[in-house]
Amino acid sequence: MIEINNVSKWYGEFQVLTDCTTKVQKGEVVVVCGPSGSGKSTLIKCVNGLEPFQAGTITVEGTSVGDPKTNLPKLRSKVGMVFQNFELFPHLSITENLCLAQEKVLGRGHEESMEKGLKLLDRVGLKAQAQKFPGQLSGGQQQRVAIARALAMDPIAMLFDEPTSALDPEMVNEVLDVMVQLAKEGMTMMCVTHEMGFARKVANRVIFMDRGAIVEDAAKEDFFGQPRSERAQTFLSKILHH
């Protein structure tokens, strides 16, 4: 469904991505991990064209992301994305956050998008907060709303960019629970995260990145059993030991 072929990206002289190649099949959950500054977030943002790249190709269900002729807004409307800092729209209420893109991008009527939005809000356990504004919710609640907002577009795949990194520890699980449930329902997911527990529970594959390159791309069992690269072994021992 998502194919990344030999993608490289530079910020001026500095190369952030080096020859990255990988694939995400339909229904697969792929976790991307690695030390900070390794290019994980940049790579995932290339998938829906939020970040441009200079070499290589990315296709999402056959549509080339880097092709100037591609209708990027249309492609993005089919790929949900959840950000580290939630990025709910602070001047809009929760229901308005959920309905806006459904109405303006997909052309759904207000009733229909409202019904859809409330259903998803209920699913992430926040129906009672429908009339509030983002600023009145906790971080974990905001992130769950952000997931519902992305799901309201009926995406074919979901991208998560460190969805729990900005959260207080006690709020991490409420967000992960929603993500686990989503994975179990067969959603195609690409997740940049340090939550190895989540990876163990639902990931099919784990990608390990270092200095802009994909160092390891392995099935979950292999990655946690015996990572081949020394860099991945050190990384794992550092984050799993406490």
Partner: peptide
């Protein structure tokens, strides 16, 4: 991030200006 979020939802440049960025 707000620009990114509105783009990620499929809003066009004009729509994200009109509904997200300019009101704020």
């Amino acid at each position: 991030g707000q620009v990114g979020a509105s783009q990620a939802l499929g809003l066009t440049y004009v729509q994200s200006m009109r509904y997200i960025i300019l009101p704020q």
